[in-house]
Amino acid sequence: MALAAINDILGTLDWSEINQATLDTLFMLGFAVLFSTIIGIPVGLLLFLTNKGGILQNRLVYSLLSFVVNVLRSIPFIILLIVMIPTTTFLVGTSLGAKGTIPPLVVGAFPFFARLVENSLKEIEKGIFHMAESCGATTWQIIWHILLPEIMPSLVASITVTAIALVSYTAMAGAVGGGGLGDLAIRYGYQRFETEVMITTVVLMVIMVQVIQFLGDFLVKIIRKK
């Protein structure tokens, strides 16, 4: 009975549109995670290294960077989407659709990710730096041969957390003309009262989050082979 009912509902859905929306979400997610990581790692490193006691201790750089990161983190994402429209248009040519959502996603996520990186780095024992400097390591070598390998497991865990936060961000972007599952949920589920679409998109996003978490945990386990 229940199964038949579910089948009925699934049959009435426009799957081509749902498939497209899922692909759009994955596309946004992929690029947003990629760029957040690429920008977030150096920012996190810089925050850590210029902080008090760091090997590049610099009060001015740290305060400035920390301030910018805090400001970006305190802007609600929905506002960020709107504020960034001119910048987004300049960067990718449009502020609409999946492509137009990526820049605000990155700006929304990288400061969060950078703080996660900074926190992971803080877990490293201070003695490691004495050791590295005693070996005559350059700052670059310390970053590349020591810091990054040491935080690799927590780095992957942080990417996982960020990716999951980004899933809900992509959905929010639907409210202002972004593409993907969120867009679908708002246009069909909210504006046209098609509850089946709403439920389907939510289920798909739940699955997405589960898969990301599983993959992340799996990778961390592999890296933490010791």
Binding site: G127, I128, C135, G136, H145, P153
Partner: peptide, 30 residues
């Protein structure tokens, strides 16, 4: 000059992400 001075520490300061082999090899790598 520092590369010509070995140092050992109270808390060892080994890298947890590297094998014993790679830990010992670190100064040469640097």
């Amino acid at each position: 000059a520092r590369q010509q001075i070995g140092v050992i520490f109270q808390h060892f300061n080994l890298l947890s992400s590297k094998t014993i082999f790679d830990n010992v090899a670190l100064p040469l790598k640097l």
